[in-house]
């Protein structure tokens, strides 16, 4: 990561917030548009889960990170707090790597 990326992230993410707040008096989103925007986060989050678990140099692969994901997802499903979910996922991956 370099500073230009940090800056673009900051400008972009603040831009949404400020843009929304400043436009709130003039714009009212249609229900349809608002619903579409609400669908974006779940789609992209699951895209991140898939690519970061099952992609290796442009190829599909199943390895230690998959074990981490299964263990962590199970912990999250059982309502474990966030840091514990991460710790369990990390530990499961490290364990599989050791084997």
């Amino acid at each position: 990561m370099d500073w230009s990326l940090v800056m673009l992230l900051a400008v972009g993410c603040y831009g949404y917030k400020a843009g929304g707040v400043l436009a709130s008096k003039k714009i009212k989103l249609s229900e349809e548009r608002e619903r579409l925007l609400n669908y974006v986060a779940p789609a992209v989050l699951s895209g991140l889960i898939i690519t970061q678990t099952f992609e290796n140099e442009g190829q599909l692969y199943v390895g230690a990170p998959a074990a981490g994901l299964v263990a962590g997802a199970l912990a999250a499903y059982l309502k474990a707090p966030f840091p514990l979910v991460l710790a369990i996922a990390a530990a499961a991956t490290a364990l599989v790597r050791l084997l």
Partner: peptide, 22 residues
């Protein structure tokens, strides 16, 4: 890619801004 995914995820804050700006 880092920027693109982050901005896709941040878009909902724009919707929040529209509602909370009031």
């Amino acid at each position: 890619t880092a920027l693109g995914t982050a901005l896709l995820l941040g878009a909902r804050n724009g919707v929040y801004g529209l509602s909370v700006g009031r």
